[in-house]
Simulated assay, not measured.
Amino acid sequence: MDLPLKGIKVIDFTQYQQGTVGTLLLADWGADVIKLEPRLVGEPGRAAGLAYYQAHNRNKRSVTIDLKKEKGKEIVYRLVKDADIFAQNFRPGVAERLGFGYEALSAINPKIIYLTGSGFGLKGPWKDRPGFDAVGQAMGGIMSLAGPPGSPDLPIGAAVADQTGGFMLGYGALLALIDRQRTGKGQMVEASLMGSVIGLIGWVMQDYLLSGQSRGKTRARVGSGVFSCTLRAGDGKSFIIQTFGKAAKEKVFKAAGLEPKDPRFETGEKMRQNIDELIDALEGFFSTKTRDESLEILGKEDVVCAPVYNLAEVAAEPQVAANEYLVEIEHPKEGKIRILNNPVTLGMQKARVGAAPELGQHTDEVLKEAGYSEEEIAVLRKEEVI
């Protein structure tokens, strides 16, 4: 059975992570993603190593072009003529200066869907500034929420602004494809690092807008019936609990030998005021148990809980294997390696699983599909256009 995006052609002029993740999501589900890369060196993400490049560029085809040369630009314009999507995440204005802005490409193909990833959006005083993941985390507010009270404002260990920005670009591409089916028209789709992080923190931002109070950093999440905190067991390993509602909270207290009606923790407001006492009391009990023993005790009370895993534990977890979140492939140079899989499953189809392309691996193949003869390709190579 064909994948949902088979027949969708994407010209991918993205780099690093935000843009490449957006087109990666399309490639996983069958789109023909043609990645444009500079001759000899490739896009900057290659310099970050195999893991970085593989994670963001699997299932794509690589074409190397010198886009500063007119013949290089002509190749792109020819590819755009029958493409469905063009994607870039350069600093605002760069694609336009190179001749690949939305106005230029939509004049060639009015049905083109043009994805653009930015740091801060295309309007406002910050619109022309460059952006990377950390600044998206900083200005989107998530750094002010991470860590215990008094801790430095540090980026989260994974590039969540880049990754979420990529998810939003892929989401926007699908919306524009559906809209084009109805209208016959292409359009620009934009997602920024800052805007994506604001969307990611979701209800926490909405809570501030309604209450005027920022939750800030805390040892636990307490509010609107929710209680969640991380605890350390006697073997030094951490686990997390999360409850919703008074009855669920009292199950935790019961499991830990605490008085369910303890007046210090009777309401959400009192729990916030005495959160250090509460966590110390819980850890006082669970410090006499291993993490596995703690989770078993809580599980018997039907408490929502889970171990806090490091990456090695994630990779070894049977639940990860059962759902194929990580899979093994045969890499053309590295042999058997485990890679990330697309985390979405459909009832009748599975996403593609494959390696990222070698630099320029598909240049001749793609150019022939675009109508170039072998002789023309040889001339382009001699002139160092490809």
Rank of each mutant, 00 (worst) to 15 (best):
P260N: 10
S224R: 13
R291I: 09
G299M: 06
I240L: 12
V226T: 09
D280W: 00
S238M: 13
H331F: 04
G225V: 04
S224H: 12
I337W: 01
A316W: 04
E269I: 04
D280N: 10
V226N: 06
S294V: 03
C229K: 00
K237M: 09
G236W: 08
G245L: 11
S228W: 01
P318K: 11
A306S: 15
K254C: 10
I297G: 01
G236N: 10
G299I: 08
K246V: 10
F286S: 03
A256W: 03
A255T: 13
P263R: 05
E313W: 05
K251T: 06
E334I: 05
N274I: 09
Y309M: 12
I279F: 03
L298T: 07
S238L: 10
N274F: 07
E269V: 11
E328F: 05
G236K: 08
S224F: 10
L298D: 08
I241F: 00
N310D: 15
K336P: 05
E313I: 03
L231K: 02
E324W: 05
G268C: 05
A315G: 04
E324G: 06
I275T: 06
K254M: 11
V226K: 00
A256K: 00
L282F: 06
F253N: 01
E293Q: 15
C229N: 09
E269F: 09
Y309N: 15
P307L: 03
